[in-house]
Design a protein around this nucleic acid. Structure first.
Lengths: 184, 184
DNA sequence: GCTATATTTCACATTTATGTGAAATTAATC
DNA sequence: GATTAATTTCACATAAATGTGAAATATAGC
């Protein structure tokens, strides 16, 4: 039997992805528990959302790290990171709607320098490497490329949910369009 | 003195763009009237939102039509339509968050055929023309290209608001990235 | 100034989500 | 089986937004 707290968070993610303004009653029902129980674990709505976000952070971080380490070719790393972002984002789409993408400005200077060994730093290293070798359009600012990356992930998830594009094609389309959009 | 109803709608657009869950009191205050007055014009929240949407439809339609008619070169038409979309979307960003983009599936068959002379039909004509002449990647489905177009508009607006990219560069970046992303 | 229309004020009803307290019940552990 | 912990039930308090009625006031047009 799964930990109740985990169960609640998973239910919250599912429910909020369908409707972010859904009540806590709905989340509790989905988790198969009473709302009062939910409140024993999460004092209020904020706390629950924050927990969902934390969950996403670690999950995404892991998936991205795996993607990064799977190759030493920057272009391949970028491609795999895009796929990882799509897979991850599909599960946590509602958070994107609340918080929006992490803006470039939110990334600390240390992360840009690569001092901080976070996954974002790795992403920047990949782009920097591609740009230095002239494989990516050098006119485009990194902030723009970063935004494009997030935007392509969101778009891919939306299209995937809409059912307008064959599931098999989607990731290929996403990589094609993203890579071209940065001049790769 | 502006028509009260118009005033309300404009205020609603401004307020809801900042915070979609803002109360009607806030909208009324912004419009410089009493909430009771707002209710004389709009029975409920839904009605107000619907009116904002209708407003957007006509405004966008007009801007797109102007863009379309400004050139006979499909690529140029597409570029100008993208810019029109960005300008328009910036004002109505909150609607995008509620309704999402119009999915390809929402476009009627008549519109795809071009029987219906709507702006969407014109957009499809432009893409079809480019694809027939081999100027756009023929592997990509029209549904995907349509989604990309909307996604690029949303992304450009977000970036513009974030302030991370120089205002002068933004539209150029958007067109560069979008045109490349479809193989143009 | 009179009249018609638009707007405000005040008062209330309703709904919905939240959050909490305390006792009762259920499940788990030893 | 006794004890402890987790969960449910019921009851209530609160808060915030919404929608409406009716009288009072303001505004504009003639």
């Amino acid at each position: 039997m799964k930990d109740t707290k985990v169960q609640i968070v998973e239910s919250a993610i599912t429910v909020f992805n369908t409707d972010y303004s859904a009540s806590l009653d709905m989340v509790a029902e989905k988790a198969g528990i009473h709302r009062r129980t939910l409140h024993l674990y999460f004092g209020n709505r904020q706390a629950l959302i924050a927990c969902c976000k934390a969950e996403m952070m670690t999950t995404c971080q892991q998936a991205m790290t795996v993607a990064y380490q799977a190759s030493s070719d920057p272009a391949k790393q970028l491609e795999l990171m895009l796929y990882a972002g799509i897979d991850c984002g599909a599960k946590y789409a509602f958070l994107d709607k609340i918080y929006g993408h992490t803006a470039y400005g939110d990334v600390t200077q240390d992360e840009k320098n690569g001092t901080y060994d976070s996954i974002k730093a790795k992403w920047f290293k990949v782009i920097a490497s591609l740009q230095q070798n002239g494989l990516v359009n050098q006119q485009l600012s990194i902030a723009w490329i970063f935004a494009l990356f997030g935007s392509m992930i969101t778009n891919t998830i939306n299209v995937s949910n809409s059912g307008d594009v064959a599931q098999n094609d989607i990731k290929a389309f996403a990589w094609y369009s993203f890579s071209k959009s940065i001049g790769l």
